[in-house]
Design a protein around this nucleic acid. Sequence first.
DNA 1: ACCTGAACACCGTTCAAGT
DNA 2: ACCTGAACACCGTTCAAGT
Lengths: 183, 183
Amino acid sequence: MRADAQRNRERLIEVAHEVFKERGLDAPLDEVARRAGVGPGTLYRHFPTREALHEAIMATWIEEVAGQVEKAMATEGGCREKLLAWFEEYVALLTRHQGAAAKITASLGCQDSPLRTKCQTYADANESVLAEMADNGVLREGVDNLDVCRLLGGVATMADHSSLAPEDVRPMLDVIANGVLKA
Amino acid sequence: MRADAQRNRERLIEVAHEVFKERGLDAPLDEVARRAGVGPGTLYRHFPTREALHEAIMATWIEEVAGQVEKAMATEGGCREKLLAWFEEYVALLTRHQGAAAKITASLGCQDSPLRTKCQTYADANESVLAEMADNGVLREGVDNLDVCRLLGGVATMADHSSLAPEDVRPMLDVIANGVLKA
DNA sequence: ACCTGAACACCGTTCAAGT
DNA sequence: ACCTGAACACCGTTCAAGT
């Protein structure tokens, strides 16, 4: 890759990060190209689809997921507190950008989405937490990881669309925790 | 209202219903006007915003909500079966059109949305079911109606985005039921 | 009072011409 | 090999001219 191409690519990711944070994942791509100081054709050369650009951006926060699992599991208290700390983090990680939660969770099931490999990281992280709960004997029988991921994705999407504060999200996570843990 | 205006209005709602069912609530409004045989300006005169058109369409299925509550409460079995039958119906009512679940649930909280009065019907219906559960002493303390509505809206939105079949939705509703009912 | 449809604006996407 | 920016397409929205 030529040096100027490399620079343009990095600059585009950086600028897209800003623009998407400000105006959501559906923000005009023109704006991204303009702020990065390149023609629209250059953006399309590097990222043929909007999703390709999303994917490139999410790569940066995906790296944090594993660390957040550890942090949540180190929470003071019992299994319930640890689980809820993780749920809150999961929702926070999904709602970093407007529109992200719905898109990531939607690509959980289907094999062909460009986001799939990325969102698999979320699913794996959640699975590891559920496995720990099972080891401690507090997980209900028959609770499926994919279902929990979708429930959390649904909560994150609602939080996103209604701009909910963490304290408004918490009661929903409580219900899910009740539903996932043994009585 | 003039007779031709009346006819146009009805025809627009009818056609919009078809178009939105086929292509989702974000379908081009041009298409609606074209199929209805009117100019785009006429559509805008009757429905100044896309949401106004959504609202007009939803008015037709809103009428069914009360009936579905009764039907669900008549389900064979205990409280849990009744509750789950209602949850399934709630999700079905929200996913009649692509994109509807997210929009309706998003307008649950905010006072100024044109959809608010309509989606209030959903919230009221759910509240009546929860109240019945409480009367039977099976509802957990501190379960809030709005939170349950949002959880169900989240499930419906995920079902919508991933085109989930009822059997894939059911396990999520089981978790919510577990979380809402006493152990 | 209502309708039409041309006109404008905005944005996504492509591609011929440049370096 | 990569970039530019004009050009086209599509769709939302408005409004002057009609009936």
